[in-house]
Nucleic acid binder design. Structure first.
Lengths: 198, 198
DNA sequence: GTCTATAGGTGGATAGAC
DNA sequence: GTCTATCCACCTATAGAC
């Protein structure tokens, strides 16, 4: 876990490469849909070595959510820093999801939410934290948009935020079987347009 | 597969009881999250007997989607027959989802959509058919609402229908980790209200 | 940090008696 | 239609050498 080596062109360290492969596998096949053997085959290191880095599958899952949540928070900070009005921020937020779907993946936590009841309790807690963080950020943007009079939605900003999160997670879920990013983009646009309507 | 016996208080036949248990297990834990052993333990019949009724797990899955789709179509027919305007129909449509979530289940096909890439191709096709049927019904209701001037949404009726389906599937997905049906109901109301806005 | 080897369990599925 | 018994592949995880 020493992070990326400082020399140019160097590969990420082993733990990072494991997380990269595991993350893609969870996002495409689910936590119950992949095994250490899958990672082993792809990286060319034995299952025993994987256990050296992540002792149990639950611990691997916990590390995955942690990293994903941190990356998402960082992405939201970037969205904020690029400025623009609330509508522009929401469009960039939607783009984050769209890029995931383009690789035929689901949101990591959206996938894990489907498998929620089969997951260890610590993972369940982290999944809710991810959704909570997204709702909080979205609610802030909704507030910003209302103060600027560009959003005219009903209900609390928090409620609108939850609706947005739900709609985007669902749009990914439904679009993927059709391998159709446009399906997602269309649904997202519908929802965003609705926010501006009186 | 002889259907419900005609005598009063008689139990459903074995195939039906297997489907009932398997359906709940898929909706709560996913297709990759349950096993024949789980059904066996709950019904008190051996795994070998289960294989007599459904030779493979894929065949069991196919039967589950088929039955679920038929039940859903029947429910939509009832929604239509009870009449009312398009808004009333959509509210009853939302209630169908809400009843599923109340039992801490996801939509069967929503759950399977998450696991999509791990499923046999015949199941994948049936999942898309389920979504297609829902979109078609919803597009019809959207059209009805527009002709009656109670919906003022943008985009084609089909696009609005896809957005609705996505939002509802996603609202179930996100609400379940919180065991909070109100979260779903709130998101659903947000979306429906948006349809009426100009 | 990676390996070989293996434990101990569970997965879906089958054969054949009753 | 249900059972016992069994197969074999795969699962997560560990022990211990290098």
């Amino acid at each position: 876990m020493t992070g990326r080596p400082s020399v140019r062109d160097a590969q990420p360290d082993t733990a990072t490469r494991i997380l990269d492969v595991a993350e893609r596998l969870v996002q495409t096949s689910g936590f119950n849909g992949f095994s250490y053997a899958d990672i082993s085959a792809e990286l060319g290191i034995t299952k025993a070595s994987l256990h050296h880095h992540f002792a149990t599958k639950a611990e691997l899952g916990r590390a995955l959510i942690e990293r994903y949540s941190e990356a998402f928070s960082a992405a939201l900070k970037l969205v904020d820093q690029r400025g623009g009005d609330a509508a522009a921020k929401l469009e960039r937020y939607v783009k984050l999801y769209e890029e995931v779907l383009r690789e035929e993946r689901l949101c990591l936590c959206g996938m894990l939410a489907a498998e929620y009841s089969t997951l260890p309790e610590p993972l369940q807690k982290e999944i809710r934290r991810f959704f909570d963080a997204n709702e909080t950020w979205l609610a802030g943007v909704i507030d910003q948009g209302r103060r600027a009079r560009i959003f005219h939605s009903r209900g609390s900003a928090r409620e609108v935020a939850r609706m947005l999160l739900s709609a985007l997670e669902g749009a990914m879920l439904v679009a993927r079987p059709y391998s159709d990013v446009a399906r997602f983009a269309s649904a997202a646009r519908q929802v965003l347009t609705g926010l501006a309507a009186k």
